[in-house]
């Protein structure tokens, strides 16, 4: 039994679901952000698999752009988290409830 497109797509879906569950489960903003990254790389795995099995390399070029966007996103997001920690003294989501009241 050869490894086909199904296997890669199933793994991609599993990664995305794990990341999604992590976003819902965790309270720490940093771990939440790592779960977002997991969802992003799950999508890149799907793109690369489709590109390989269709024989069109355009998906790989898209992944190149996704990597650049991810680097930008991580830099800005971590800067925001650090600024948040300086101002509020915590990074736990359930203590950042200023909009709740």
């Amino acid at each position: 039994m050869t490894i086909g497109l199904h296997h890669y797509l199933a793994l991609s879906a599993l990664l995305f679901a794990i990341g999604f569950g992590g976003v819902l489960l965790r309270k720490n903003t940093l771990v939440l952000f790592m779960s977002l990254e997991l969802m992003l790389i799950a999508s890149t795995l799907g793109l690369v698999a489709f590109s390989r099995f269709n024989g069109t390399p355009d998906g790989n070029v898209f992944v190149l752009f996704i990597l650049a966007i991810a680097a930008v996103e991580v830099a800005v997001g971590l800067a925001i988290i650090v600024a948040l920690f300086r101002r509020r003294g915590t990074v736990m989501v359930d203590e950042l409830n200023a909009l709740k009241h």
């Binding site: 879906a13 995305f16 679901a17 794990i18 569950g21 992590g22 819902l24 489960l25 309270k27």
Partner: peptide, 17 residues
Amino acid sequence: NLGASAIGFAVLLAGVA
């Protein structure tokens, strides 16, 4: 939280499957 994340995980996985 546990219930919500488990349900989200399961629903997403079931949909893609």
